[in-house]
């Protein structure tokens, strides 16, 4: 059943509606668990669209196995998705820095408060992100160290390749995931693929993982495939490689591949002079889990993140 989470009038002859699809077994759902699948906070991240689509289809086709409530929110920032805008159009504001929102505030804060109230109280929430247009990410779950003890065991069901337990940062305290976790609603942030694109295999991989997690929670009693064992790591084992010069980045490696210390990862080149401005070598043995997708780089642009092995 399609339900409004928040509906709001725009200035000229249009309503802004943020909607969800509630899928539930026939009859009373009292006492049943609820899982929320949310995506589209950042309007340029689309990988979650495929996950929502596949879950919707699969669950509805096998509805007899559903033992709880699934709320699917495919577009928390509909204006952003429609206009290829990462933030909230008209406010130059990252929606994922406005939670838990404020009913007495500006429009984005008002919307954030309504969304937060709607999700709050669920048993688990999965917030699906897709990196941005600059970087490609292997399917991973990112967990604040403050909540690691409770969330890492849950995240292991999600069929991702990697779980990154990162240190707490004040600026991240306004995210949807942090706000929900602090309010007692366990929320996992999945990150995969690249902005403005779909990666079909990742979509299927995470959809399977969400079903497996639902089975673990008792929301799904159908058979689920075996999930892969993720690598769990903390900040200290992640190496960042940033561009030493502005130019065009040409990659020489593949994503999610073993590299050796000193291995040639790519170059930053100058099309004007034909020079190689900066040769990028791996600082360690490890796995490249983040890789630059967008070729133009400034000094400082992130090129890769390597998990030290």
């Amino acid at each position: 059943m399609i339900q409004d989470v928040v509906s709001l009038r725009l200035p000229v002859d249009e309503d802004l509606r943020i909607v969800k699809n509630r899928i539930a077994p026939e009859g009373s759902t009292e006492g049943m668990k609820r899982i929320c699948i949310v995506t589209g906070t950042h309007g340029d991240e689309l990988e979650g669209q495929l996950v929502c689509f596949e879950l919707n289809r699969f669950i509805q086709a096998n509805i007899g196995h559903l033992k709880g409530i699934v709320d699917i929110y495919p577009a928390l920032n509909p204006l952003g998705i429609d206009s290829i805008t990462r933030g909230v159009p008209g406010f130059d504001l990252d929606m994922n820095r406005t939670f838990p929102g404020n009913l007495q505030g500006s429009m984005p804060e008002y919307i954030a408060a309504k969304i937060f109230e709607d999700i709050r109280g669920a048993d688990v929430c999965i917030d699906i992100h897709a990196s941005n247009i600059f970087l490609r990410e292997i399917p991973q779950v990112r967990i604040n160290e403050l909540t690691a003890e409770e969330l890492v065991p849950l995240a292991k069901h999600l069929n991702v390749d990697f779980i990154w337990v990162h240190s707490a940062a004040t600026v991240l305290e306004s995210t949807l995931a942090y706000s929900l976790n602090m309010a007692g609603t366990r929320t996992l942030v999945a990150e995969m693929g690249v902005g403005m694109r779909l990666t079909r295999e990742y979509g299927t991989q995470l959809s399977m993982g969400i079903l497996a997690l639902m089975a673990h929670l008792g929301i799904w009693d159908g058979s689920v495939p075996e999930v892969r064992e993720p690598i769990v790591s903390v900040d200290g084992k992640v190496e960042f490689i940033n561009a030493a010069k502005g130019g065009i980045f040409v990659s020489h490696i593949e994503h999610w591949k073993d590299v050796r210390k000193g291995e040639h990862l790519g170059d930053i080149v100058s099309p004007l002079t034909g020079e190689i401005l900066s040769e990028i070598l791996s600082p360690c043995d490890g796995l490249v889990f983040t890789l630059r997708e967008y070729p133009v780089v400034d000094e400082g642009s992130l090129i890769a993140r390597i998990l030290r092995m």
Binding site: L8, R9, L10, P11, L16, G90, Q104, S106, M107, Y110
Partner: peptide, 8 residues
């Protein structure tokens, strides 16, 4: 010159 609903 334009304004959304529910905004300060």
């Amino acid at each position: 010159p334009l304004v959304y609903a529910d905004t300060v």
